[in-house]
Design a binder for these strands. Structure first.
Lengths: 131, 131
DNA sequence: CGTATATGTGCACACATATGCACATAAGTC
DNA sequence: GACTTATGTGCATATGTGTGCACATATACG
């Protein structure tokens, strides 16, 4: 995007200010760790399970898995329910999809408004092609 | 999602295995830091700019901003171009939107397949409502 | 009631990351 | 060529994070 003859529109301003509201760091950080991704895969594969079942097969200690599950729950990615001495965990698929959908909807104007170096040099741009 | 009478379908398996391929940690991590988000906001607001211009107004040192820009470029979020002694940076909006779109498309089946504790207790589920 | 199992937490430690300062390199200006 | 400006990097440091062990708590079982 060029900044000399292309005035910054209100859409740019709105997009800029919407970033911080939609980029939930707690949600995104929860999806960055490979162990937590393994946990999500496991829950998807075997369904609702307790901590020990989820930890079975994974290389980390069970207490570590417990901490990761707490972190995923803080992010809204998993939900827990007490069942006797066990604690069952499950994914909150609708919430995850809703969250990512909101992110995409917010960032979507970037596809048009933020084309890299649009109209910056002699490359073929819409303007140069028209003239 | 229940795991006793509801057999795990092939869709669950496919969704589980697709997770690691689409959850690009380098891309997601780049969006987690508040300083990097500020940088993105700045580039959106003022368009293509060099490092010093981007760093102006931000509290961090200019070298720190330089490092963050390198990290954002590694993630594909920004693109750089040399211009004399300056280095110009710009957002790659289309790539960002494409990346998030791919994530959403992959996770979208979760909205149906991973409803939390579906059919687990006496709550009103589709099955109990039908009987 | 004593025992076994499941879960979460305090603590220590290794590693990653963000930050700032000093400096080297590259490129424009006089 | 000397000087100035722009950028990136080496180094040190503070903070955050993932990990494992030991242990406390809660609950089921006999």
């Amino acid at each position: 995007m060029k900044n000399d003859n292309h005035p910054l529109t209100e859409e740019h301003k709105a997009l800029s200010e919407a970033l911080i509201g939609v980029l939930d760091t707690r949600f995104l950080k929860a999806l960055c760790d490979p162990t937590r991704i393994e946990i999500l895969k496991k829950i998807i594969s075997i369904g609702v399970s307790d901590v020990s079942t989820i930890a079975r097969g994974l290389s980390q200690d069970r207490s570590v898995i417990s901490r990761h599950l707490a972190q995923l729950e803080q992010a809204g990615i998993t939900v827990s329910r007490k069942d006797g001495r066990r604690v069952l965990y499950d994914l909150d698929g609708p919430y995850i999809v809703e969250k990512v959908t909101k992110i995409l909807n917010t960032l979507h104007p970037m596809a048009d408004l933020c084309r890299p170096f649009e109209g910056w040099d002699g490359a073929a741009t819409l303007e140069s092609q028209r003239s």
